[in-house]
Design a protein around this nucleic acid. Structure first.
Ligand SMILES: NC(=O)c1ccc[n+]([C@@H]2O[C@H](COP(=O)([O-])OP(=O)(O)OC[C@H]3O[C@@H](n4cnc5c(N)ncnc54)[C@H](O)[C@@H]3O)[C@@H](O)[C@H]2O)c1
Ligand SMILES: NC(=O)c1ccc[n+]([C@@H]2O[C@H](COP(=O)([O-])OP(=O)(O)OC[C@H]3O[C@@H](n4cnc5c(N)ncnc54)[C@H](O)[C@@H]3O)[C@@H](O)[C@H]2O)c1
Lengths: 248, 248
DNA sequence: CGCGATTTGTGCACGCCTTCACAAGCGCTT
DNA sequence: AAGCGCTTGTGAAGGCGTGCACAAATCGCG
């Protein structure tokens, strides 16, 4: 949408946007900042301090300032950051100003939930195609979209400008689906199947594995249990700051 | 299950298991190794080399060896690792030998999918209670469990030995649910609502935000697009190694 | 116009994590 | 019993990320 782009620190006056190579850790936090900013914006805030935004996003304020400084200087000393300006800037960096078309493959339990999730559309993504291998699923309409057979995937990806594929099939089928997506030209994949995907260089894969999340929690439970058996249980004080979030 | 525990490097002959404080990064990878090991085990493998297991888990072999060395020496030089021995060891470290009871709060689209997911039970977790605030949901039976009203949460947590809570409510309700879980004694929370939770120290929160995953992919799409516009597009060769996984 | 209050942007130090490279150790073969 | 090939376990180096602490910059007010 708002495609305004403001002076880049390393003043490059060319057509290409001089892409700053942000640290991966920073990129993973930008969406959090963005969500917090939208929240603030809806609450009517014009500006926000690094302290305030950091609290809203659940991070250290120094970290937040360093992250934002990588995008350029969009804050005003003594005042803070302009909320809408920062939103535009982060959305530009994340490429959310151009709506991204997403294909969802595998419409079982999880796929159904994903297809009906409003939180994608509101954050710049549009699921434009649904695919399944099961002929009982094919033809069904889900939230305004018709489930197509996975064989049509290749053509649909090209025709509808799909750049992101979401895999919600059983793990045995995931690699095959990934191959088809890549062949069709998809260069980003979000994989919910608990397995490792092999893809050519240039294709990004992110994996979400809920069981792994639970297992990490289980480890900490185990650790906590074996600690309370030992010395004086520490008094619980101070909140937050022990928030773990996804991200590579 | 198999609770055998083998000589710890720092030989402590006490009742308490001498908990090694593993690096967080290592902990986050152990579940991946575990899945790969189970896969190998089903395929009939008795031993596996660090190279082989690393490939199956999608990581560097040196990293894998260092990770495993933190648990103690369970490999044999010139041979590799004993698959079942390593499985038992990792499961012990992760606390998966004692089945963990999980409460799921919020049975909308996502909650339904989670409730019916077999992948939890097969990996040591058991969803034992479902809660919702909506009276239309309360009373429904989902995969053998009856949805209860969220008001009963406190008692159920205590009665049924629940240590992990999963939040799948809208973000506005998430903090309230988290508070109730914590009050009831839950010390680990997996949060699907896109918001920051504030919890007392000693409580672990892990967050899964699918929109954030897509936004990170979007960034890389944006970056790739602005690169191909520039110099010679690099030739795509060599596969894997650009796999990003969740984990803090 | 000057000053103090406020807040950003960043230099710096520290710790964690990754990766290479290789010595030490194990088993198989002869 | 000795040698050889293979694989683990780890020392060391380098890179990345974090957080402190402070100088620089801006605003509001007298
Ligand atoms: N349900 C959950 O809450 C949950 C949680 C975490 C992970 N997962 C993972 O997500 C994936 C999907 O889970 P689910 O519970 O929805 O499984 P599911 O069995 O309900 O659905 C899988 C769907 O994929 C389709 N499918 C199978 N092979 C296909 C192919 N080659 N091409 C296209 N579609 C194909 C099937 O027809 C089915 O509709 C699994 O890998 C599962 O491990 C699910
Ligand atoms: N559906 C998805 O694929 C998806 C994907 C990513 C994130 N999420 C997030 O997961 C959460 C749930 O998503 P959904 O699509 O299932 O939403 P939903 O609206 O379908 O379901 C929410 C459920 O929570 C219940 N609820 C509301 N307040 C409650 C309370 N105080 N206590 C207990 N239960 C309460 C509601 O009755 C409803 O059944 C949301 O925060 C959403 O942003 C969903």
């Amino acid at each position: 949408m708002s495609q305004q782009r403001h002076g880049n620190t390393s003043g490059n006056a060319g057509g290409v946007p001089a892409f700053p190579d942000l640290p991966e850790a920073t990129i993973a936090r930008l969406p959090e900042y963005l969500r917090a900013l939208h929240h603030l914006s809806e609450a009517g805030a014009d500006t926000v301090s690094s302290e305030g935004l950091a609290a809203a996003a659940g991070v250290n304020s120094a970290k937040l300032r360093k992250d934002l400084s990588h995008l350029g200087s969009y804050g005003t000393r003594g005042v803070g950051y302009d909320v809408t300006l920062l939103i535009d800037q982060i959305e530009y960096i994340l490429g959310l100003d151009q709506r991204r078309n997403v294909a969802l493959v595998g419409l079982g339990n999880l796929g159904h939930a994903l297809a009906g999730y409003a939180g994608f559309a509101s954050r710049g993504f549009r699921i434009v195609a649904l695919f399944d291998a099961d002929h009982d699923q094919v033809g069904k309409r889900i939230h305004g979209l018709t489930v197509r057979h996975v064989g049509e995937l290749g053509r649909a990806v090209v025709d509808e400008g799909i750049t992101i594929g979401v895999i919600a099939t059983p793990p045995t089928a995931a690699q095959g689906v990934a191959d088809e997506l890549v062949t069709a030209g998809v260069t980003s994949i979000l994989n919910f199947a608990p397995c490792v995907l092999s893809v050519p260089a240039g294709v990004d894969v992110r994996k979400v594995d809920l069981a792994i999340e639970l297992q990490i929690l289980s480890f900490h439970e185990h650790r906590k249990a074996s600690l309370t058996a030992l010395p004086g249980g520490r008094t619980a004080e101070e909140d937050g700051e022990n928030q773990e979030a996804v991200g590579s």
